[in-house]
Amino acid sequence: MATFKIKRFNPEKQPQPYYEEFQLDIPPAATLLDCMNQIKWTLDGSLTYRMSCRSAICGSCAVKSNGHALLACQRQAEHLLDDNDTITLEPLGNMQPIKDLVVDFTPFWDKINQVKPYLQPDDEVPPQKERRQSPQEFSLIDDASTCIMCGACYSDCNTLEVDDNFLGPAALAKAQRFVGDSRDAQTHARVQALSEPGGVWDCTHCGECVERCPKPTRPFDRIKEIMTVALEHGVHDNNGARHALSFFNSVKRSGNLNENRIPVESMGFFNIRGLLSLLPAGLRMFLKRKAPPVIHHSIDEVDDVKRIFKELGQ
């Protein structure tokens, strides 16, 4: 007998959420969604959640199970049991709950809309035929196009937990689907917009989105691809790009990081406010003898590293 501990919330009845436990024998090979349906259909008809296709393609049934977002229809319930034979279900994070496991997706869709989520081709479209796109070009947008908009990545994104302004992994993956599309003519404008605050450089590299994504979309990998294209397109006038370039140049020069230079170069030499903001931490560290050595040492055999940079045209 398994216990399903479910976070219940119905503001029509009471303002505060609470946890309710249901006991259920998990039928053989039942998915988590099958179990939720058993609970709804045989124990408590008021239990509320979204669902539709039950084959991991519509993206309706994402919930948090034992603290992490997943698609309920995609997972065998038995695999989710904790040490106490319990599965804890909660609504997705980073969105407002409406009732039980149903959350308000409005901010999620607003952000999808912000990235101009449609092809912006040039006018040269062959009227009677398809545009050509090689299998290699297709492969650049293959993964991003598998996104089912389930919101699992959005739910567990660490940046979104502290900053509503971040576009979030799903919208950025959607953006990469067009940044990487050989048929799109607005690549430069797109990466420019995506380099603004709230864009790719606000991603904190936590990898949660890759972990929660039920499809091969892997949003963080897509975010990195946008960064690469932005740097290639010369969109350098922001802290993220400056940081990447400073880091890159440091490794190029010495094979390792010059930690004294990176903060300054990331802020930009003429960004007085930004530079001032570095002072407190810098001063504290200096006083505690934590500041990196003033004379920066290269690694041994740095010439070979330089050679590799050169060979790759970097």
């Binding site: 092809l119 398809e130 050509r132 299998p135 297709f138 947008i141 196009s145």
Partner: peptide, 19 residues
Amino acid sequence: IYELEHMGCVFSRTPDGKI
């Protein structure tokens, strides 16, 4: 189909880039 492709629909491709 061509219209869908023009809209941006993602299709698998032949080696010479056709649908």
